Simulated assay, not measured.
Amino acid sequence: MSPRKSVAEAATTRARIIERALTLATTDGLDGLTIGHLASDLGMSKAGVVGQFGSKELLQLAALDAAVERFTRRVPARVLGADPGLKRLSAAFGEWIDYMAGGEGHGGCFLTSVATEFDARPGPIRDKVLAALASWSTYVSTEVRTAVTAGQLPPDTDVEQVVFELNGIALAADQAIQLHHDPMAPDRARRAIARLLDAAPRDTSPAQNR
């Protein structure tokens, strides 16, 4: 076997393991993901799975990296062509809702599920989830500020409040989709986002949040 073929096959195996790990973690939780279960499910030896990552935690972190990359490709990357500000915000949240409602999101929003699972458990996994969610909030706040600068939202808009409410709508949609299996959840979320962006409340609080 040539070195090039060996590297390619190792990368294919690694991607296959991560994909299956994401699927299993959807039902078992990321912490419930075991090397034994994963190996059995894939028809591999435990050593074959561990050899790709080194430890269970490194496998979990690799799965998280894959989930973040997939979310980035599926949501922000798809709306790059939309006008900055309200149109891009609306399009981005629309993509996120579609992602949660479709099967490609591994059942709802994977990052949101992991955030709930590890919210009180300090460590590398929690840190990675926090970094990913902070990056998303920065993305959203940048678009909200752009909308304010462009006159699409009132000049005294409380940017962080709008970000909070937009993310809150998405989290509510995720729960309604996953837990309640509400077929109306995606449409309700889109209407709530449209209402918020169409009539963002004027802020009367001190200027530090603007």
Rank of each mutant, 00 (worst) to 15 (best):
S2R: 09
P3R: 08
T13S: 08
I18N: 12
E19W: 15
R20C: 09
A21V: 08
A21G: 13
L24V: 15
L33F: 06
T34H: 01
G36V: 05
M44G: 13
G48A: 03
G48Y: 01
V50K: 09
L58Y: 13
A62D: 06
A62M: 04
D65E: 12
V68P: 01
A77V: 03
L80N: 14
L80S: 14
A82H: 12
G85M: 08
K87M: 03
L89M: 08
L89A: 07
A91M: 10
D98W: 03
A101R: 01
G102V: 05
E104V: 08
G107P: 04
G107W: 02
G107V: 03
C109T: 02
T112E: 03
R121W: 09
P124W: 10
P124F: 08
D127W: 05
K128W: 07
V129G: 12
W136E: 07
V140D: 01
E143V: 00
E143A: 02
V144T: 00
A147F: 01
A147N: 02
Q152A: 13
D156E: 11
T157V: 05
D158E: 12
A170V: 10
A173S: 06
D174T: 10
I177E: 06
L179T: 15
H180G: 11
H180A: 15
H181P: 01
P183R: 15
P186E: 06
D187S: 14
A189W: 06
R191K: 13
S205R: 14
P206N: 10
Q208L: 11
Q208E: 08
N209H: 14
N209S: 11
